[in-house]
Design a protein around this nucleic acid. Structure first.
Length: 752
DNA sequence: AACGGACGGGG
DNA sequence: GTGTACGTCCGTT
């Protein structure tokens, strides 16, 4: 009873899964923290709902009614007789009724949460990964499943033959392996987007029941915005549920992490594993579209590949999984829902509902806002070109800090629950950040703390999003409060910029809560830090301006598009101008080579890099792969043939020229322009795996020299006077008089 | 070129 | 019994 309501008050330890139904039966699986033993409790609970008007609830269903206090519209807490079809009442609309899913009714009513007194490493976690002959479950088959059991042992199951019977047998063996290992949690990368839907479709087609939950029923479904389209009727999107186990998709965690830190441009398993340093150096890599082909000639290689996948997923889940795990200890929802839910409606709303019920207070109904438009943040670009001695300062969690500092909360939150929640989560985040800083860079421990901090930041920052969302989405939406937050935010940013400028720095770019600026040549790092702390002292309480980094130089191209050169020579590229999945690899390589030279005022070096690349292209010393670009197919074969006479498109010409007449929309391929003016195809290898095919080198060199100049070198133009830029990109086949000039050339920085 | 909507991934 | 943050890419005007 001592725990605050945003924490849950029931101390029952070790809950690892909950499954409940409208009949008022809840199955609670707990892992006893002392022994690690699994127990199942079968308990009764009283299903409940909250109604605006009692008349909306059929009299025959009502067991007990309690009137809640306060001004909220949803004020009748009704306990109904078990088995009442209360889900049907949702049709009344959110402004008249609140009916939670049965597990959440149970968790809210009891004050229980998952994982109390249980550490993440006590969970029994299992990973499995399908290998299939292709991406389409209507046509393709599962031929292999890699499995990693909770003890860490990896095994590979394989179809013993090519037909239906062999595939059905493989699926049955997978189900048996899961039942034998009895995991609390099943994990994989894109589990909900690929493995489970593929498996469900194949199982259905082959007449196999996927009863790998902890009660003997097949897979269940739940509606999910980010799910896959259901096979049956309608545009309904769903995810799968295995009662008694939690199905965790590491892609969800990666997206959350990427969103909150902004430094994970690629979300695929191999790239992410490399980023977190969990990929082995001898990791087997095979381009996705060649896996089955390789299997037929070299099955051992595919076994190594698939095993590496589950090993990496397991490590990744450890590094990133701490965040959702922590949320599950707080919020009255299933762990798997907290792992994929949005922060506002997925985490904050359940916490607020529980807090209000616990306090015996009526809940406000969802309510459309008045016509007040929402106003956003500020974005300023002060200068473009090359700047030296650059400092980045930013305010951590500006919006929640403003909410806390000025006590800006939703008008209808008469309990003040949202602000109290933000206060607590900010404290937790600061603790996690401190722990991250205290642990060794690159260590798994540090990643765990950073993931935790990122999750808290996500929830905390979405407290503002919660205010700003339309009233049809969140219960306490309040556009006036949201506008007050952004207005204060613009005020703070303006004050920061003004105060910095007064202290003699050159402003470069400022955005919402952070600012880049350049300092005079004579300044030391201590001077930089002093200026930041002087300005920090001028800001409102709780708004903490931090020294976020210092760089040798910055190439400012457009708002949110820039390059930073660290004092250690490291290069950071931001924005679509400098990093795009479509960019030809040779162009990326050129920018990575040229920008550091540009930023140390070695303009002759930039010219040299340009000449080198242009010459290599003309001599076809650049591999065909490096001039290709990755595109996504959007036309069907039939659709393209219809328009082909009026309009030729490179990707489809490349497919046809290579003899392919069938493809699927959404497929990604790598194409290049051939000297003959048509399209060529290169084996895709987004994971850095190069197919060892012979390299035709029949690309249109002149075309790619133009691409080098117009698409890539152009990104450097802001930093050079026009005549210097022209000299840099002059055609190397016509040696000119300009080159000597470049030794003296200097980069420029121009106010916008 | 500017805007709105879909998607992020898996074999 | 659904609804996210952001950044990128595509298709449409």
């Amino acid at each position: 009873m001592d725990l605050p309501a945003d924490e849950g008050w029931d101390p029952t330890p070790g809950i690892v899964s909950v499954w409940a139904d409208t009949a008022g039966r809840a199955l609670v699986w707990r892992r006893l923290p002392q022994t690690g033993r699994l127990v199942r409790e079968d308990v009764r609970f009283s299903p409940w709902l909250i109604a605006r008007r009692l008349e909306d609830v059929p009299q025959a269903w009502i067991d007990d009614v309690r009137e809640l206090e306060g001004p909220g519209a949803l004020r009748h807490l009704v306990h109904v007789k078990p088995g009442s079809r209360i889900a049907a009442l949702r049709d009344l609309g959110k402004d008249r009724i609140l009916v939670l899913p049965p597990e959440e009714q149970y968790l809210v009513a009891t004050g229980r949460t998952y994982f109390r007194d249980l550490s993440f490493d006590r969970l029994r976690r299992m990973q499995f990964d399908l290998e299939t002959t292709g991406l389409d479950p209507l046509r393709d088959r599962i031929f292999m499943v890699a499995v990693r059991d909770p003890s860490g042992a990896t095994s590979v199951l394989e179809a013993r033959g090519a037909g239906d019977a062999a595939e059905a047998d493989l699926i049955r063996r997978l189900v048996s392996a899961i039942l034998a290992a009895d995991p609390d949690v099943i994990e994989n990368h894109n589990l909900h987007g690929f493995d489970l839907p593929f498996l469900a479709r194949r199982a259905r087609r082959l007449g196999v029941t996927l009863a790998f939950g902890r009660i003997p029923v097949g897979l269940r479904q739940r509606a999910a915005r980010r799910g896959v389209l259901a096979d049956d009727e309608g545009p309904q999107r769903i995810r799968f549920v295995a009662p008694g186990r939690e199905l965790i998709d590491t892609l969800d965690a990666v997206m959350r992490y990427g969103f909150s830190t902004g430094d994970l441009p690629w979300r695929g398993l191999k790239a992410v594993a490399r980023h977190f340093g969990v990929a082995g150096t001898d990791r087997e890599l095979i381009p996705g579209d060649r896996i089955y082909e390789v299997y037929r000639s070299d099955p051992a290689r595919v076994r190594r590949y698939a095993s590496a996948d589950v090993e990496e997923v397991a490590r990744l889940a450890e590094i990133l999984g701490g965040a959702a795990f922590a949320l599950a200890r707080m919020a009255p929802r299933r762990y798997e829902r907290l792992a994929d839910a949005g922060a506002a409606t997925g985490v904050i709303d359940p916490l607020l509902v529980r807090a209000y019920l616990r306090a015996g207070r009526a809940l406000p109904a969802h309510q459309d806002g008045d016509r007040e438009p929402h106003t956003g943040a500020a974005l300023h670009l002060f200068a473009t070109g090359a700047a030296h001695r650059v400092v980045k300062a930013d305010v951590a969690s500006l919006y929640p800090s403003l909410m806390r500092s000025y006590r800006i909360g939703p008008a209808r939150d008469t309990l003040g629950a949202l602000l109290r929640l933000v206060d607590r989560l900010v404290e937790r985040r600061l603790a996690a950040k401190a722990s991250a800083k205290a642990s060794r860079p690159g260590s798994a421990e540090r990643f765990t703390h950073e993931a935790m901090s990122a999750a808290m930041k996500l929830v905390v920052n979405s407290a503002y999003g919660y205010l700003a969302a339309g009233g049809s989405l969140t219960r306490f939406a309040d556009v006036h409060a949201a506008n007050e937050v952004t207005r204060r935010g613009r005020e703070v940013l303006d004050l920061m910029c003004r105060s910095l400028a007064e202290r003699g720095v050159t402003l470069l770019e400022a955005d919402t809560d952070g600012v880049y600026f350049a300092v005079p040549a004579a300044w030391s790092e201590a001077d930089e830090r002093r200026v930041v702390s002087e300005v920090a002292a001028l800001l409102p309480p709780l708004v903490q301006l931090e020294f976020d980094g210092r760089y040798q130089a910055m190439l400012s191209h457009e708002p949110k598009n820039y390059a930073l050169l660290g004092y250690d020579g490291s290069l950071v590229l931001r924005g679509v101008a400098f990093r795009s999945s479509r960019a030809e690899p040779f162009g990326d390589a050129f920018l990575r080579c040229a920008i550091p030279r540009l930023l140390v005022n070695d303009v002759a070096g930039v010219r040299e890099a340009y000449v080198k690349m242009a010459t290599a292209l003309r001599r076809r010393e650049v591999a065909t792969y490096d001039v290709s670009s990755r595109v996504r197919l959007t036309r069907t074969p039939e659709g393209y043939l219809k328009i082909r006479d009026s309009r030729r498109e490179l990707p489809y010409e490349a497919l046809l020229a290579s003899g392919r007449t069938s493809w699927t929309v959404g497929e990604r391929i790598r194409v290049y322009r051939t000297a003959a003016g048509s399209g060529g195809l290169v084996a895709d290898s987004e994971d850095g795996v190069r197919a060892d095919d012979t390299d035709p080198r029949d690309y249109d060199a002149d075309h790619y020299v133009s691409v080098l100049r117009d698409n890539f070198a152009e990104r450097l133009s802001r930093a050079l006077a026009p005549e210097d830029f022209n000299a840099v990109v002059a055609d190397p086949d016509q040696p000119s008089l300009f080159e000597p000039l470049l030794a003296e050339a200097r980069t420029i920085l121009a106010p916008v």
